[in-house]
Computed example of a mutant assay.
Amino acid sequence: MPKTSNVYRDKRNGSWYFVANLGTDAGGKRVRHWGRGYKTQKDAKAAYDAYMADFSKTAVKVNSTMSFGEFFRTYWVPDYKARTRESTFAVRSQMARKRFARWDRCRLRDIDAPALKRWQNELVSAYSPSYARSVYGYFAMVLDMAVKLGLLRANPARTVGNVPKARREVDFWTRDEFERVAATFDTSEYYGLHGFTCLWLLYMTGLRLGEAQALRWSAIDFGAGTLSVSCSMYYRNLGDWKITPPKTKAGKRVIALDSLTLGYLSRWYDVQQRNICSDFVLSRDGSPLSKHVIGRIIERHAPMAGVHRIRVHALRHSHAALLISLGENALAIRDRLGHEDVKTTLGTYGHLYADANRGVAARLDAAFSPSGGQPVGSPPNPSDTPEPVGNVAKDV
């Protein structure tokens, strides 16, 4: 029978009981509550959950000696796990194990602004601003719950404030760079064609990696020229993966495909189906595409093309940069990438519109300059001014 946190079996009579850890008293002694005599493990777990829920409304408000680690494991983890994506929870859990250890035995009431500021400075010195901001922001979220439950009067992490958000220049391949990489593949060979198809699909659609891993042939309508995104994939390893909803509600979308991409996908379908049996578009061996494969493809072919290496997610940035260079507006790019809000699109790619702005000026010139005639709105030639008729007084 799988183990359940805080629930145990009494070896003497076979019944089940739970132990609720409630922090420490004023003297530093650990405070616990036992609930005994349950017939099943499930009953004991339900009783534990009910007790802790009631405790959060009453006793927790007067208990100010609980450690951060106890609070994190007892209150935060179950709540956060229930309301967030599994992949997000896994990433945040790993982050907490590595970065929150220093606070584990510290009582919540002893966590103050000066100590947090010193920690924040250490994070900024040791890691990138974006990672330091992510770690500190997650810690602040945990303390927000402590405030909500009455363990803290105020959140000292909010008093200090998070690491300032640094503007990052997104990395991407230009159209010329991508074409140079694409030219390095031997598409007459199975694995060469597979690698080419992987990079081409991500570059020309802006799919997230998880969306591309979960993409099935049934989602591509060759007649209508569209690709439907309705799911993603949480991939840990070959034996541990699952289909999940898209990252956001806007992630469910239909992407129009160009004729060249449709042709390449059709060619890959014929070759793939002659070699393996798989519903997944990017499968090369019958299993879902490993999350590491495309990174290795880039690592191998970028030097062959003489271009800089990029991360897999940068192929999505490259697609957005391509669309901006072609004059597409932010709303169209938002819909194609599956962003929830156009602010996300502009916040990430707004700086790329600088060059596009010069194109706007050129198009305005063309729009208001009819061929063979005088530009609309230009000052009239003095010689074309008509003579006054009669005795007309000038307005003053």
Results as ranks from 00 to 15, higher is better:
Arg36Gly: 09
Thr58Ile: 01
Ala59Tyr: 01
Ala46Val: 15
Tyr51Asn: 09
Glu70Gln: 14
Lys42Trp: 07
Ala53Val: 06
Ala46Arg: 15
Val60Trp: 03
Glu70Asn: 12
Phe71Asn: 03
Gly28His: 02
Lys42Phe: 09
Thr65Met: 14
Gly69Ala: 07
Gly23Gln: 00
Arg30Glu: 08
Ala20Asp: 07
Ala59His: 05
Met52His: 03
Asp49Trp: 08
Gly23Glu: 00
Phe68Pro: 06
Val31Trp: 00
Tyr51Arg: 08
Lys42Leu: 14
Trp34Arg: 15
Gly35Ala: 07
Arg32Phe: 05
Leu22Val: 02
His33Ala: 14
Asp25Ala: 09
Gly23Ala: 06
Arg32Trp: 05
Gly35Arg: 03
Lys61Ile: 00
Gly27Met: 09
Val62Glu: 06
Arg32Thr: 15
Gln41Tyr: 10
Phe68Cys: 08
Val19Gly: 02
Val62Ala: 12
Asn63Asp: 03
Thr58Asn: 14
Val62Ser: 13
Val19Trp: 05
Tyr38Gln: 08
Thr58Glu: 04
Gly35Met: 05
Asp43Arg: 13
Phe18Trp: 03
Tyr48His: 15
Thr58Leu: 02
Thr65Val: 08
Ala44Trp: 02
Arg30Lys: 15
Lys29Ala: 13
Phe71Gln: 02
Glu70Ala: 15
Glu70Lys: 10
Gly35His: 04
Gly23Leu: 00
Asp54Arg: 01
Asp43Pro: 06
Ala53Cys: 06
Lys42Met: 11
Ser67Pro: 03
Thr40Ala: 01
Lys61Tyr: 00
Val31Gly: 03
Ser67Ala: 14
Tyr38Leu: 07
Asp25Arg: 03
Ala50Trp: 03
Lys57Arg: 15
Ala26Trp: 00
Lys57Trp: 01
Phe55Asp: 12
Ala53Glu: 12
Arg30Gln: 15
Gln41Asp: 11
Ala47Phe: 01
Ser64Asp: 04
Tyr51Val: 10
Asp54Thr: 06
Asp43Ser: 11
Lys61Ala: 13
Asp49Tyr: 09
Ser56Trp: 00
Ala46Asp: 14
Ala50Pro: 00
Ala26Thr: 08
Ala44Thr: 11
Ala50Phe: 02
Gly27Ser: 10
Lys45Ile: 08
Tyr48Arg: 11
Tyr38Glu: 04
Arg36Trp: 11
Lys57Ala: 11
Thr40Arg: 01
Trp34Asn: 14
Gln41Cys: 15
Met66Ser: 10
Thr40His: 04
